[in-house]
Write a protein that binds this DNA or RNA. Sequence first.
DNA 1: TCGGAAATGTTTTTT
DNA 2: ACATTTCCGA
Length: 774
Amino acid sequence: MDYFVGLNDPQQEAVRYLDGPLMIIAGAGSGKTKVLTTRIAHLIHKGIDPFQILALTFTNKAAREMKERVEKILDNNEARNLYIGTFHSVFARILRFEANHLGYPNNFTIYDSDDAKSVLKTIIHENNLDDKHYKPSLIYNRISSAKNQLISYIDYAKDFHFQQEDSINNRPMIASLFEFYVKRCFKNGAMDFDDLLYNMYILLKNLPDILNKYQHKFKYILIDEFQDTNPAQYEIIKLLSAVYKNICIVGDDAQSIYSFRGATIKNILQFKNDFSDVKVIKLEQNYRSTKSILHAANGVIIHNKIQIEKALWTENEEGEKIKLIKTKTDNEEGKLVSDTIAELKLRNHFRNRDFAILYRTNAQSRSFEESLRRLNIAYRIYGGISFYQRKEIKDFLSYLRVIVNPMDEENLKHIINYPVRGIGKTTIEKIIQFSNQENISFWESLSRIPEIGFRGMVKNNINEFVLMIKNLQAMLQKNNAYDIAMNMSKTTGLLKELFNDKSIEGVNRYDNIEELLNSIKEFTETQTDEGELQDKRLGSYLQQITLLTDADSDKEDQDVVKLMTIHAAKGLEFPCVFVVGLEEGLFPNIMATYNREDLEEERRLFYVAVTRAKLKLYLSHSNTRYHFGNLQQNDPSRFLDEIPENYIENSYASVNTWTTNVGKSIPKHNIKIPSSGVQSRMKSLEYPLTEFVLETNFIPDDPVKMKIGTEVEHQKFGFGRILNIEGSPSNLVATILFPNFGGEKKIILGYAKLRIIDNSKSKDIENNESIKRL
DNA sequence: TCGGAAATGTTTTTT
DNA sequence: ACATTTCCGA
């Protein structure tokens, strides 16, 4: 067959080996997508019905691409019938169909993590617990991690490790909150992301008929990015593949970077033991990167202890050495990277789309945005707050969700008084009380207004609201998603409310809603594939929309520089890559430096970053960086030292701003008139040394006077004691213990706003020049 | 009960 | 630094 042309031997073998368990260890850039798609095409060519092929990917985008590529190879419509999607979207589809077996409505709502946290917040308050101690996000993470290990709230309460941890942290109520949360979600007819996996497992595990049905439906199963699956996903896969055992997993343990989401590298290491006669094929030839880049990557990953043995190699050119960019500040880092992009465009005729800037945390995008904008270079940031998380979009979708599933109390409460219609807090409280008392849902209570005792305006307002929702619900059967959304936006006054807001943000919000309406229209009008549900209704729309991410709305052909986290860059490749912020504490992130497992994952993350590059790779780090509005000093990342020296070029630095005259170029007293916010933050601090006196003019002392042991005061951190001073005379760095502000901090004395408090407290007004300047 | 001011939290990564 | 939440006065 001609689709074998261009495949190397192991790739061909991986495509041809159709029956029985197959594990493909596919190094970075080894053509694994090509193998997967060709394999699917080959299966279909061999007569396997596409309806019987299930392929699970990590992102919707990967799924879409895979389908397109199979279509291209086969050059017919057969690929349309494939079951390709993410774990979450495929399972959501199945659950939507089978929901009744679990006692859920078919139109169940999917809660994203914001929805889930907001439900948790309510529950925490209902239990009279402090949400400072029982932080919703923390509770959510605990519950999520339990569900990803298929641990129910009952098991959780008995689980030794969870209980021990909770008790050490003095949070004994988590198990109980877990129970409340699960029951509330169920009552609301809602599943969170983890439920899509957990409930899928329960469905298969507890209902043999259904298990049997899907086991036979999916005769051939393929799983991409297997190293990033969690135990729940793996157990489901084991169940589904138990009859035919035609399971093909593709993964690379060196690229496992999602353990924080419950993924475990154990799955890939365990696969060989869990299935018998596993065929293992390694794809070790890299087609993506230059020798320099690949060798550098290999040189780094070798520092990890836990890994499957493999030797990645390439026939590509040697290429240029990797370039190291050093800067003084984070802004300069942005500037230098942008300048380099501009220069490369000019000299080497690269286009914007050839560049990617990859960072560890979303917060790092700012300086690059600014500098790119200054040079008029088009860019796009991926991740961060996605379109669907915007307030106006959430409000809008809340309405649609309530129409589809009025049992969803969370969304119902969200919209009942928006736009304002005179149903206030106390009214809602009363309704909640009534529903608890009668053991009915919030929505059901709304139809029994006289019994609660509402009369007059309140009664009318509620009745009007209920009638409006009911009218919209009446459309559900006959009308498509767009018709209902359009109708809703008019009858609820939502569109009008936004239209009347003529502020810049208001106009923006209106535009966003328009865009959303357009996307709904598109959803109802596009011809779906036969394999998909031919379901243009609102419920179907809502279920898929929650599972979309930023990357999924990518307009492929835009000529823009791409900015994203390394996590988001997984699976992608770019001619020129900048990996930025390579500093201790940031990357490896401070949170990941406490044990070997986390550090190794961090190193794998770096490996992923490096292997995104095809031709040119730049690594940058900055001496100082703002964090929470404070200047911090960071050492270069240890990962930089791990790159073999002969592949990296150290000389690429902004020498003029870096090595020389650090002290001279910076004003000695970098004084800011304290903002009121800072003052009030100080007020709440208590420190035994001295009573804090509120001051409007905070004049720092000359750092020269500060010694180890000196007691100082910082505008934000409060009082502290200098534990250590190091560095060159022009660039002294002090380690200071701030008992009331999280302990030790490293502070550059040249920049710091510190006042000596054990000598004098004199308010020196003479230095006012620098105040005027600011 | 609303809007502005003050206080507080956030930054590790995401389906 | 920025966003969100809470506080407070009219």
